[in-house]
């Protein structure tokens, strides 16, 4: 499987019933790029992230993840949906971290991290366990392997969730407001893990309200509003000197 890690979106449209949440989304994220998406709630930033992972399907437009059409294959006249097997295979290359962690409560932290390699890829249990221990250690949770999610704090759970996604060796990691459900006190530990990850050259797309993280870590920043990408550019540039009036208004409110 080729290492790619790029995301390309052209003229993406997506509606939920009568409500069009993505109107004309164009994205071009390079391999290893750290991209933060900010914007008011309901602007479609979570939806575009969920499309890149196949949790939602786009209505029209081009969506290429890791260099290939995602979830569909192109013919002369249409895009045809992939088989569930092919879609699952594409998904394994894109990790997703949720706002509400979504760890499996019936599995220990270690089993959660092992779940991808063992249950999806059919990897050897012993080796996966060893790898999972290393991953847990890398998110600062060495020795927490036997704990169940309910025994862990929110910050710890989110770090396990990050390790679980990493266990699949994805080329791209998506973060959907990973710190929004956390106590303010626990935000830092999750961001620290994400910073670590950013240094390792992983492509990351982060929907966030943490402007500090965006300023410090992100390469590029996208401001979305009402289903459109309003502004995109260098993260520090956009944050300190926004060009669009809508971006200026938003940043004034949150900074």
């Amino acid at each position: 499987m080729s290492k790619d890690g790029t995301i390309l979106a052209q003229k993406i449209r997506k509606s939920f019933g009568p409500k069009t949440v993505l109107k004309d989304i164009n994205l071009d994220i390079a391999s290893g790029e750290i991209c933060c998406i900010i914007g008011p709630s309901g602007s479609g930033k979570s939806t575009i992230l969920r499309c890149i992972n196949g949790l939602e399907t786009v209505d029209s437009g081009v969506l290429k993840v890791n260099g290939e059409d995602f979830g569909y294959y192109e013919t002369a006249h249409a895009y045809h949906a992939h088989s569930p097997k092919k879609l699952a295979e594409q998904r394994t290359r894109v990790g997703m971290v949720f706002q509400s962690f979504n760890l499996f409560p019936n599995m220990t932290a270690l089993e959660n991290v092992m779940s991808g390699p063992v249950l999806v890829k059919g990897a050897n249990k012993k080796e996966s366990a060893k790898r999972a221990q290393e991953l847990l250690a890398s998110v600062g949770l060495a020795g927490f392997g036997d704990y169940y999610p309910a025994q862990l704090s929110g910050g710890q759970q989110q770090r396990v969730a990050i390790a679980r996604s990493l266990a699949m060796d994805p080329e791209i990691m998506l973060f959907d407001e990973p710190t929004s459900a956390l106590d303010p006190e626990k935000v830092g530990e999750v961001l620290a893990v994400m910073k670590d990850l950013a240094k390792k050259g992983m492509t990351m797309v982060v929907v966030t309200h943490e402007m500090g993280f965006a300023r410090e870590v992100a390469d590029s920043l996208i401001f979305m509003d009402d289903g459109y990408v309003v502004e995109r550019g260098d993260a520090r540039e956009v944050l300190s000197n926004p060009q669009e009036a809508r971006t200026q208004a938003f940043l004034q409110q949150v900074l």
Binding site: K85, R91, M96, F98, F104, L119
Partner: peptide, 26 residues
């Protein structure tokens, strides 16, 4: 929860594995 199903999907679990390992135990 819906989030559990999404988490299983995003890991690329097949429908059968998702049923046996995630949905039924919970």
């Amino acid at each position: 929860g819906k989030g559990q199903i999404e988490a299983a999907d995003s890991l690329g679990m097949s429908a059968g594995t998702r049923m046996r390992k995630v949905i039924i135990p919970q």
